[in-house]
Amino acid sequence: MSPTVAVLDYGSGNLHSATRALAAAGAQVLLTADASACLDADGLVVPGVGAFAACMEGLAAVDGPRIIRERLAAGRPVLGICVGHQVMFDRGVEHGVEASGVGVLPGTVERLHAERLPHMGWNVVDAADGSALFAGAESERFYFVHSYGVRADADVAWPEDARVTWVEHGGDRVVAAIELGALSATQFHPEKSGSAGARLLRNWIATLS
């Protein structure tokens, strides 16, 4: 039987493309804001586009931070995508507005230093050693579109068991993905990354039980 995946519906865009991609990768997918459904599913996906603070407001409106923290505390898998990745960090600073994140990852999401923004297009990533997400796709290209992220020069104290994948853009070295316990998160859009993104989603779905 295929694992169940809840896609958290909190008003952010790009929900349906993520839902279709997860279904194509082999999951039974439910698009929902219901807390019980999100807690009970084998996996939870938190997508997101737009501004950090606005996404956090939307998450708070459906009790998203509590749902995410409860799942992770119980060792239940969560996948964040794009701004859904960014909100997992301690805080975000965008257009002079500072907002608290879910806080399950250390670090601050801030504007990149690269001259050309947004960072838009296809990039090879520097996949973390032992990554489950990137198994078989370590040298593939993934689709990015963002102007904010967690930079390598921000001197974050990563947990010892964190697997951090990086991407280079315009002289900035930025977190492209992270795996920590039951949490996986990608700055890029796997649902827009063709066969490489489909492989990554299949890898994540294979970890669900």
Rank of each mutant, 00 (worst) to 15 (best):
Y143W: 02
G92F: 00
A61N: 13
E138V: 04
L117E: 04
L15I: 08
A114P: 12
A33S: 15
V102Y: 07
L183V: 05
S147G: 13
F142I: 11
E57C: 13
A25I: 07
L59P: 04
L183T: 05
V174C: 05
C82P: 14
H85Y: 14
D126N: 15
G64L: 10
D153P: 14
A196C: 12
Q187G: 09
H85N: 07
G64E: 09
G181L: 04
G170H: 00
I67F: 02
G84H: 00
A35N: 13
D63R: 14
H85F: 15
R116D: 13
S12F: 11
H189V: 12
A6P: 06
D42W: 01
D172G: 03
L208Q: 00
P190Q: 02
R91L: 02
G121V: 06
I178F: 05
A35P: 07
G181D: 05
L44K: 08
A198H: 02
G43W: 00
A162G: 08
V83Q: 04
F188H: 14
G48D: 08
L180P: 06
G170N: 02
F52A: 04
G171I: 12
A53W: 11
N203D: 03
C55A: 15
L15W: 00
L105D: 08
A132C: 13
V7T: 00
R76S: 00
L201S: 10
A74R: 14
